[in-house]
Design a protein around this nucleic acid. Structure first.
Length: 637
RNA sequence: GCCGUUGUAGCUCAGUCGGUAGAGCAGCUGAUUCGUAAUCAGCAGGUCCCCGGUUCGAAUCCGGGCAACGGCUCCA
């Protein structure tokens, strides 16, 4: 039951209702909303976020009990839990987690209500100074204005906090300390580092268990692990953060490119090839030298400074202006799989997700200002089609608008931003606006997909650019013979192919659809007597353009099946007396299903269709689509 | 770049107090010819990440580098 009491607000004299929680049972779904409605200064958190933020308080209280000299910083909720930044002499190790959890449980068992309290700034400073919470005092100093501050008490723990919170610590029943990491006070790397303790909490034990299972599953299908197990790619210290793709990996990589090329053909792009290394003058013109030089590989030859391209756009501008362009040529859509090199700082790289040598499915569209809307619509549709093919759900779309420091005319920005949103509106696509998050050269749309484990990845991007056409003096001849400046649209669907490779590998847990599988069919003779038919079958598959491997070793069938299964080969053909006699095959899928004996030609014809690169001219067949959630494979013994 | 952790055979890992480097899998050789997720035996395989120091002696201790991993920051 909710009760209200009058509370003085700020300096004004009016009274407003305020909440006090007296109720123990958890999870009134609407508590937080009520809290938020009554006081808009209370952040609008979801019930789960509220629970997690409350759990952060409980954890902080527990840590303060165990290590009274701990100084608290901030303790917010995150996408899948919460953390608290703490400054203390004791260096936490995983062995401490159990003690912390036990102390947290004591807080929970104490059934302490969360009590909100309003204080003046001086009172808050006085309180936290007395408690020795220097970081809190600093945080108070950083809060602008002289608004009333709020405290939340639970038991004998008190924290500066805007809330909201659950009613009572007893509601925090399912929690776990996850990990410990370093973090800076307010992200400032010149300040001493704090210890960030990560935890998670859920409304009930079942959800917590499921969350922990998903974490285990994510570990099992980590693309770095799968890449090694499946022999797809390799890293060596001799080329830090730069993948070596093996023969198998390159099949996947090239097939991804082949698919994107299908889309290009369908949607009116032409693919070009541009240089790798340019005179640094190019990047001085584009602005990369000024803004991005520290991330570029450079060298000086013959007293001339060169830079390895970190992006394709400047080179594309050169190609655009190498001839006089008529408005009739626009929109000009040029695509480039050019290899890019960026000197990513040593601490930021990892697996395929952030590498120093990579390629994008990159394209630039040069168009008339009035063509922007139609182009955005077309690009967006192509991106959505692309993600469908890979079995991703509808992506989350975010529009980033003009940042504080920007280049170009205000009116142009306004026009561009409304063009982006109008295109999305027209397509009936929901999106979120990230105000002020655009690049300084133009607004953008980002596309984020969720993979099979519900993790979010930013893949595609569509960016308007008014700067490069200006800087490179690009122009076209208009119908009245005047000169106009084209608008440049940067766009990528998969983003970095390397990164997409990693994301997708995890999404399908190594079970590539047939058209992407490095090996599509494994032919497994039972004994030497079946080798002749094996060679015939393999030759027929090979002739149909399928990727086939034979296993002629004198190993037992079980082993051959096991190994092909672990390599996630989509189909296995076990050949024994029956198959030889019938001149047929009985395909076994990697899921363990065995089909009936059928004539070889039938299987070849069927598989050839399934293995086709999705054409982009029709919806992919179910077989071409990726499996949504791969069944769990028996782990290696 | 910053903080922390780690680095031993192709892979996954063990290695006590500083005293000649270990296993399983993979590989090679041989045997086995087998019907839907691991046949048996033998052999071979090492710059203990790199450089330097301490020590009679270093995988082990110390210093410096490199790389990977977990985070932070960054990702015009």
């Amino acid at each position: 039951m909710l009760m209200t009491r009058p509370v003085r607000r700020g300096g004004s004299s009016h009274f407003r209702p305020r909440l006090v929680y007296l109720r123990a049972p958890m999870a009134d779904e609407h508590e937080h909303e009520i809290q938020h409605m009554i006081d808009p200064s209370v952040p609008d958190l979801s019930p789960l976020e509220t629970l997690r933020h409350s759990a952060a308080h409980v954890m902080a209280a527990a840590i303060k009990k165990l290590w009274p000299d701990a100084r608290l910083a901030f303790g917010p909720h995150t996408d899948d839990g919460f953390y608290y930044d703490i400054d203390m002499p004791h260096r936490l190790v995983p062995e401490d987690f159990e003690r912390i959890e036990a102390a947290m449980q004591a807080e929970v068992d104490g059934k302490h209500p969360f009590v909100r309290e309003e204080v003046t700034r001086p009172a808050a400073i006085e309180l936290f100074t007395r408690l020795g919470e220097g970081l809190k005092v600093e945080a108070i100093a950083a809060i602008p204005g002289d608004a009333t501050l709020t405290l939340y008490r639970s038991g004998d723990f008190v924290d500066l906090c805007r809330g909201p919170h659950v009613a009572n610590t007893a509601q925090i029943r399912s929690f776990k300390i996850m990990s410990i990491a370093g973090a800076y006070w307010r992200g400032d790397e010149t300040r001493p580092q704090l210890q960030r303790v990560y935890g998670t909490a859920f409304a009930d034990r079942k959800e917590l268990k499921e969350h922990l299972r998903l974490i285990e599953e994510a570990k099992a299908r980590d693309h770095r692990k799968l890449g090694k197990e499946l022999g797809l790619f390799h890293f060596d210290p001799i080329a830090p953060a730069s993948p070596f793709f093996t023969g198998r990996g390159a099949v996947v990589y090239n097939s991804l490119q082949a698919y994107v090329r299908q889309l290009y053909r369908k949607h009116g792009y032409e693919e070009i090839i541009t240089p790798q290394i340019f005179d640094m003058d190019l990047f001085k013109t584009s602005g990369h030298y000024e803004h991005y030089k520290d991330n570029m590989f450079a060298c000086t030859i013959d007293e001339r400074e060169f830079g390895v391209k970190p992006m394709n756009c400047p080179g594309h501008c050169i190609l655009f202006r190498q001839t006089r362009r008529s408005y009739r040529e626009l929109p000009l859509r040029i695509a480039d799989f050019g290899r890019l090199h960026r000197y990513e700082r040593s601490g930021v790289t990892g697996g395929l997700t952030r590498v120093r040598s990579f390629a994008q499915d990159d394209a630039h569209i040069f168009c008339l200002p009035e063509q922007v809307g139609a182009e955005i619509t077309s690009v967006t549709n192509t991106i959505l089609e692309c993600y469908r093919t890979f079995g991703f759900d509808q992506p989350e779309i975010e529009v980033s608008t003009r940042p504080a420091s920007y280049l170009g005319e205000l009116a142009t920005w306004d026009r561009a931003e409304s063009a982006l949103m109008a295109a999305l509106d027209a397509a009936g696509l929901p999106y979120k606006i990230n105000k002020g998050d655009g690049a300084f050269y133009g607004p953008k749309i980002d596309f984020k997909v969720r993979d099979a484990l519900r993790r979010s990845w930013q893949l595609g991007t569509v960016q308007l650019d008014f700067q490069l056409p200006e800087r490179f003096g690009l122009e076209f001849v208009a119908s009245d013979d005047s000169r106009g400046r084209p608008v440049m649209i940067h766009r990528a669907m998969l983003g970095s192919l390397e990164r997409f490779f990693g994301v997708y590998l995890e999404h399908v847990a190594g079970r590539f659809p047939t058209w992407l599988a490095p090996v599509q069919v494994a032919v497994l003779p039972i004994t030497d007597a079946h080798h002749a038919w094996t060679h015939e079958v393999a030759a027929a598959l090979n002739a149909a353009g399928l990727r086939v491997e034979t296993d002629l070793r004198s190993e037992k069938l079980g082993l051959k099946i096991r190994e092909a299964t672990l390599l996630r080969v989509p189909y296995m053909l076990v050949l024994g007396d029956k198959e030889v006699e019938a001149r047929g095959v009985a395909p076994r899928s990697r899921d363990g299903k065995t089909g009936p004996l059928e004539p070889l030609a039938e299987f070849v014809a069927r598989l050839a269709i399934e293995a086709q690169i999705p054409s982009g001219s029709a919806d992919p067949t179910p077989q071409q689509l990726a499996p949504q959630l791969a069944p769990q494979l028996t782990p290696l013994a």
